[in-house]
Nucleic acid binder design. Structure first.
Lengths: 200, 200
DNA sequence: AGTAAAACATACCGACTAGTATTTTTTTGA
DNA sequence: TCAAAAAAATACTAGTCGGTATGTTTTACT
């Protein structure tokens, strides 16, 4: 039992350090050596717990990225209240709450998407499933807004969901190029304008 | 004179093959060796024409990326006609005209932004200048629409420009995860909806 | 206590990396 | 035609890469 715990802690250690290094320096250019140096363990430990670097990448996507997007962008959508306000709050609050570190390095998921989204089907599927989960949650919320007569019935929930996600991920990348939040503030004005359109 | 021409041709050769390989496999994981293998030249030729890989990266950004974005997304904005229609046409037509290759590998500029936008100030500045050029062209067009009374004066041109760019770059990345254009079509519906809002 | 298995460490492999030093080939201008 | 300069080729370095083989330590179970 103690062994299982230790094993799990080691896996979490590797996962945490991997996520951090992938986020800061990218997936392909972060070596197993660097990761294991960060964990204070050795390569032997890594290859005991993971088959190869690809398996680690998939684990980071499905365990770390998925969790992060879920907690930051999906779960807030299931709160009670005016659907449109929840939409605006979630996107705006998320952006405003990021520390400088997160603004400089962009969205970890978007980084993965752009770096290895076209590399292998396995990565594609793992990342796509997060996007689909996010998209579904948005559609559900927008549909709720429609039935509650706070959102215009004539607009396509799917289209709005996709456009919201696209713009959010896009600005997370572009913000990297700047050393202040002006571009984020402009995005927020653009977002608010967009949400006004779908109001009833 | 023939020497200058040869030199220029070699630089173009290196630039073209670099762009292609960076686009397909990323900047950091494309080695100088791979590039020079593609050019059918040797490493000696490379280091005769470029100081190092960083200088090549900056050249690709300012010569190849800038040109591509300019021709595909900026110059069309300066056409005559209804500003709003030009906006919609440019974004939609650009997306629709991409070959599968470009859909699979995303936007070359966005790839650079997400991979090395937070790596070094030199890259940041080079990429930012393209975004700024694009943003300025969009703002000019929107402002023209306002004076010509086809675009709502009360909306912020800057905010719309930023939101349009964000969403476009975002969807270019997300499309990588799919093997068909459904997500692009949904984006286009979302875009059209957005543009309706800024109509007078 | 003893043994098997799990967890981890050490040492190594061939392939690849950015960059340099040196030599050869080609072009230029007098 | 010939020497200087530019262009390109060759050979090399020290370090890094993902992965493997094998050794040692810790834990679990009887």
């Amino acid at each position: 039992m103690q062994q299982e715990l230790k094993s799990e802690l080691t896996r979490q250690n590797i996962l945490n350090e991997s996520f951090k290094l992938f986020y800061e320096n990218g997936f392909k250019t972060t070596s197993v050596d660097k990761i294991m140096k960060a964990t204070k363990l050795t390569k032997g430990a890594f290859y005991h717990h993971y088959k190869n670097k690809k398996e680690l990448g998939l684990a980071v996507i499905s365990l770390k990225l998925e969790k992060r997007v879920c907690e930051g962008m999906i779960l807030p959508l299931y709160k009670t209240g005016n659907a449109l306000e929840i939409l605006e709050d979630t996107f705006v609050e998320r952006l405003k709450s990021f520390p400088v570190y997160d603004k400089q390095h962009g969205c970890p998921m978007n980084n993965f998407i752009n770096e290895i989204g076209d590399l292998e089907i396995a990565y594609q599927m793992a990342l796509r499933s997060i996007i689909e989960e996010w998209k579904t949650a948005l559609i559900n919320l927008i549909d709720r807004g429609k039935t509650e007569k706070t959102i215009n019935e004539s607009i396509s929930s799917t289209a709005v969901a996709v456009y919201l996600i696209s713009a959010f991920e896009g600005i997370r990348g572009i913000r990297k190029l700047y050393d202040n939040d002006a571009i984020l503030d402009e995005y927020i004005v653009g977002l608010s304008l967009y949400l006004k359109q779908i109001k009833i």
